[in-house]
């Protein structure tokens, strides 16, 4: 219980300091939302009128205070650029990013764990080299390039899908999921590669442990050792990474959503920052913060469930 209290306190403090940081960042970066909406043709009177309408003529500190007091009451304010309540914007975007993230996560775990085990099994064999090259490629290929590659090969050459053909879940759930498949794959590939590398390293490290020698001494074979002894220990070592992956896929992938044209949280964040939409940016940054803090918390719990040596405690 003490643990939960402490975690909640940490969450609240983190949210507050992150919101302050965002506030200072907005202080520093140049750009005026009203001018951005109106473009270069606007008269000075037009800009002033719109600023008045949007409330962006008030000092930023005043805007911040009104946002944070609203936030505490559960009101996230109104988006300056999209002209609707931030909560409504989130309601539309969350299902998209969460679906995309969860599909990607399933792919990452479904491919990453078996491949990681395989990579550990294949140590010293030719298969290991191939897998190593593949993981290196997966990690080092820039994300946007991977997207283009996937679109080009699977979309334009093999015609397995139509790049850009996003269908909203409000229209058709199956077609929505279908249109998320390839973007999810694009998120999954580099993350899977990282996971494979980590699991492999963790497994190999565990294989050098004394308890593995004990198991061999008992007459256990390779498979028995890997699945019966090493895997669980290796998983403990990669749970924080899986937590980070979870946090990153749920935060919304800016690049993937942008390239595939998926209106999720990442794309919204781009829109919010480029248009200097203060309340929206604040809320999205807080969303990401909450995701990260909560996944860290989940990681703690999961590790605690797997590893009996670790107990949640109120003390640090």
């Amino acid at each position: 219980m003490k643990y939960f209290l402490r975690k909640t306190l940490v969450l609240v403090l983190t949210i507050f300091s992150i919101s302050l940081l965002t506030f200072f960042a907005f202080h520093i970066i140049p750009g005026d939302p009203a001018s951005l909406i109106l473009g270069t043709n606007a008269t000075e009177e037009q800009v002033a009128a719109l600023q008045e309408q949007l409330g962006t003529n008030r000092p930023l500190s005043e805007q911040y205070i009104s946002w944070i007091t609203g936030f505490v009451r559960g009101d996230f304010g109104s988006s300056i650029r999209y002209r609707m309540p931030v909560s409504e914007l989130l309601k539309g975007r969350l299902p998209v990013t969460l679906s995309l993230g969860l599909i990607a996560l399933v792919m990452i775990l479904a491919a990453g764990i078996p491949l990681g085990i395989l990579a550990a099994r294949w140590r010293g064999k030719p298969g290991e080299k191939i897998l190593n090259i593949l993981t290196m490629l997966g990690i080092s290929v820039p994300n946007f390039f991977l997207c283009i590659l996937i679109m080009w090969i699977f979309g334009l050459i093999l015609h397995l899908f139509t790049p850009g053909d996003y269908v909203s879940y409000t229209r058709s759930l199956p077609r929505f999921l279908q249109s998320l498949f390839w973007p999810a794959l694009s998120i999954a590939i580099p993350q899977t590669a990282i996971l494979v590398k980590y699991i492999r390293t963790a497994m190999l490290e565990e294989l050098g442990e004394d308890y593995v020698r004990t198991a061999r001494g008992k007459g256990a074979g390779e498979t028995w050792i890997l699945y019966g002894h090493v895997l669980k220990n290796a998983i403990v070592a990669v749970v924080p990474l899986i937590g980070m992956i979870l946090a990153s896929v749920l935060s919304g992938s800016i690049i993937i959503e942008q390239v595939y044209g998926i209106p999720g949280m990442g794309k919204l964040l781009i829109g919010a920052v480029t248009s200097r939409d203060f309340p929206l940016t604040q809320t999205l940054v807080i969303y990401i913060t909450v995701i990260i803090v909560v996944t860290n918390f989940l990681v703690d719990i999961v590790i605690q469930v797997i590893d009996p040596r670790i107990r949640l405690s109120g003390r640090s």
């Binding site: 399933v106 775990l109 397995l160 199956p174 077609r175 279908q178 498949f181 999810a184």
Partner: peptide, 17 residues
């Protein structure tokens, strides 16, 4: 649950576009 999700997605991905 995970398996169902994977199947749903792969079915969707194979379905007519």
């Amino acid at each position: 649950m995970l398996l169902t999700a994977v199947m749903a997605v792969s079915l969707a991905a194979c379905g007519g576009s």
